[in-house]
Simulated scan of single mutants.
Amino acid sequence: MSSFFALMSLLALAMSVPLQKRDVFVPPVLDPHQETVWYVGQQAEVVWDTSNAPAQITNSEGQIYLVVNNLIDFDYLLANDFNILDGSVMVTVPDVPTGIYAIVLFGDSGNFSQNFTIIA
């Protein structure tokens, strides 16, 4: 019975803490897009729209990963440690087979690009 009262006390305490609004920024990826072609080993620019960024962002540190077969491939970190408000970052196109890929931009949230082509 005492564990019930402890749980109820913990619940009451949690309910008394005011909630804080959290800003989530999900900037749309502009480039790469459906008509984009990247070549293995070359530099490519990833561009996203920062025009609707909230005044305060919970996590402004960005990361970009390659998406392979519609899954984020955490072995292909293309960029990290950049400010999500920069709006663009240069990446080196990884050594992958010719095919259709996408990227995911992480910061406050994650946002996928359109599918595009990488040529080996």
Rank of each mutant, 00 (worst) to 15 (best):
L66Y: 05
G87Q: 00
E61I: 13
T58Q: 13
M8L: 15
N69K: 12
S88W: 00
T98C: 02
A14G: 10
Q20V: 07
I84F: 03
W48R: 07
L10F: 10
S60W: 00
S109E: 14
F112D: 14
W38D: 05
D81I: 04
N80D: 14
L105R: 04
V40A: 14
F106D: 06
Q56D: 12
I57F: 09
N111A: 13
L10W: 06
I72C: 02
M90P: 00
Q20I: 01
Q56N: 13
T50A: 07
P94T: 02
Q43F: 06
N70M: 05
G107F: 07
L66A: 10
D108M: 05
Q20G: 09
L7R: 13
A79Y: 02
F106C: 03
V89I: 14
L66G: 08
V17S: 04
F4S: 13
V17C: 01
V104I: 15
A14M: 10
E61R: 11
D86T: 03
T58L: 12
S51C: 03
I72R: 11
T117H: 12
Y101W: 08
L11P: 00
I100R: 11
L85M: 09
T50S: 09
F4N: 14
K21S: 12
S2T: 05
S2I: 08
S60N: 07
V93M: 02
L66F: 05
A12T: 09
S16W: 05
V47C: 06
F25P: 02
N111W: 07
L30C: 01
N59A: 12
F5H: 10
E35C: 01
P54R: 07
N70Q: 14
L7M: 10
R22N: 08
A55C: 02
L13S: 11
Q43K: 15
D81Y: 08
F5N: 11
N115C: 06
D86Q: 08
L71S: 14
T98A: 10
V40P: 01
M8V: 13
L19E: 11
G62N: 03
F112Y: 15
I57S: 04
Q63W: 05
N80K: 14
S109Q: 14
S88C: 01
D75S: 13
L10I: 09
F74A: 03
T58N: 11
L10P: 00
N52V: 07
Q34M: 14
P27H: 05
P97R: 04
F112K: 11
L71C: 04
F112P: 02
S2F: 09
L66W: 03
S113V: 12
N83C: 00
T117S: 15
P27I: 01
S113I: 07
Q42S: 15
Y76C: 01
Y101D: 06
I72P: 01
A6C: 09
G110L: 12
L78I: 10
G99C: 05
T36S: 15
S88F: 01
V89F: 03
L19R: 12
I57R: 08
I103W: 10
D73F: 03
V104N: 10
V67C: 05
V96W: 01
F106M: 11
L66K: 08
L78H: 09
I103N: 06
Q43P: 00
N52H: 11
R22G: 00
A44H: 10
E61V: 14
Q114A: 15
N80E: 14
I100Y: 01
N115S: 15
S60K: 12
S9Y: 04
D23L: 00
I118L: 11
L19W: 09
Q63K: 15
G110V: 08
Y101I: 07
F112M: 13
E61W: 06
V68L: 04
V46L: 06
